[in-house]
Nucleic acid binder design. Structure first.
Length: 380
DNA sequence: AATACGGGGCC
DNA sequence: GGCCCAGTATT
């Protein structure tokens, strides 16, 4: 059930339909004029839109563009992605974060080759069944690439739609999201030619998101240039700054972590490939630990000794790095360290690698930043 | 229903 | 430092 706009009178159902038609037209006309020139819009095949949608999850469009171009160049279709070397794939994804997205895409590409003849499936249920594809992403890929009438709901449209319908309830509540999904569905074009992308779901869904990104922004929404301001219920009530309402606040957590720089006598650094099944699996990093493995420097020293064997000495702190990610506010304390005893051979999975070798291997962002700092300072 | 995911831009 | 970003999977 969609809320009835407060300003309409008479039969609420037909007025709702008329109101939605005005909103729909406003969005489509505006999008035809103001759509950004994004690479996946030039040739919106299902595969290309799939890649763009996965990369855009929890990531701003501007950040995605260079990753998208490199990715499509290296993996032009599902078959190429299915055959991708895992380490190279993670290197391509390095810096985007949420690395499970890349692993899920890899697995999904193999399923597409195996079960769908190498073509991204155009049935909603089939798309939804692929790893890493949920309700939003399935609807987005199929509507944008193939103009299928499927609703979407994500960060932008939660905000745009809740303002349009004047939703006062918190968008943290399931009932609110159900209302917004309903509205998203009702806003889709009712009659359109399957080949008419400009007036169909392909444009409507992108228009709503684009409006959220460029006009109906979280702070300081630009109502004066908004193509649907006259239909907007939040605007009519002067509540555009209060909607969408939230009840839960993010709880940030300060955290200290520790890393060690250990070199051999050939300009190589002690690193390891993170074992499977853990965070950063498959990526390379310096010896690094945080709570609960390393709660302080002494604890970290113990962790190092347990992992490396032999005798390790933590020397001075040579660098501290701040790193903000998800809910954590991390201070990484980087120690110079020396390996003073124990067997000559390193225990698995520890290796010595040169900066040149590490250039081609996937690393966490902090690992890469640390390596760049080490190189710049001619550390050895 | 709540939480993990481990990057980055913007104010 | 807080908030948000073309969310999904897991518990």
């Amino acid at each position: 059930m969609s809320p009835s706009p407060a300003s309409t009178a008479g039969d609420p159902v037909s007025n709702d339909a008329r109101w939605r038609a005005r909103v729909r037209k406003g969005l489509l006309d505006w999008f035809a004029e103001h759509a950004r020139d994004l690479p996946w819009r030039r040739d919106p095949t299902p595969y290309r839109v799939w890649v763009s949608e996965i990369m855009c999850q929890q990531t701003q469009v501007a950040t995605v563009v260079p990753y998208f171009l490199r990715f499509l160049d290296r993996y032009p279709d599902a078959a190429a992605l299915a055959d991708a070397d895992e380490s190279e794939l993670m290197r391509m994804w390095e810096g985007l974060g949420y690395y499970r997205r890349a692993r899920s895409m890899h697995a999904a590409a193999k399923q597409i080759v195996e079960n769908h003849n190498g073509e991204f499936p155009l049935q909603y249920r089939d798309a939804l069944a692929l790893p890493g594809i949920g309700r939003y992403t399935a609807g987005a890929i199929l509507s944008i690439s193939s103009n299928l009438p499927l609703p979407i709901l994500e960060g932008n449209t939660i905000r745009v739609f809740s303002r349009l319908i004047g939703l006062r309830d918190s968008v943290d509540e399931k009932a609110s999201l159900d209302t917004l999904w309903d509205f998203s569905e009702q806003l889709l074009p009712r009659k359109f030619s399957p080949t008419d992308r400009a007036r169909g779901p392909a444009s409507l869904n992108q228009a709503a998101m684009e409006l959220g990104a460029l006009v109906c922004t979280p702070r300081d929404p630009k109502c004066l240039i908004c193509p649907v301001a006259k239909a907007c219920q939040a605007r009519a009530a002067g509540l555009q700054a209060e909607i969408p309402a939230k009840t839960q606040k993010m709880k940030y957590e300060a955290r200290s972590e520790y890393a060690a720089l250990v070199s051999d006598n050939q300009g190589r650094w002690l690193v390891r490939q993170i074992p499977p099944g853990t965070r950063f699996a498959g990526m390379w990093d310096f010896p690094k630990a945080g709570p609960p493995d390393a709660n302080d420097a002494e604890h970290f020293h113990q962790w190092l000794t347990n992992h490396l064997g032999g005798r390790i000495q933590l020397d001075e702190v040579v660098k501290t790095m701040k790193h903000a990610v998800t809910k954590y506010r991390i201070t990484l304390n980087v120690y110079r360290a020396t390996r003073t005893g124990g067997p000559k051979a390193l225990a698995e999975p520890w290796k010595f690698r040169t900066p040149d070798q590490l250039k081609h291997l996937p690393m966490s962002t902090t690992g890469r930043r640390l390596l760049n700092w080490v190189e710049k300072n001619q550390f050895s």
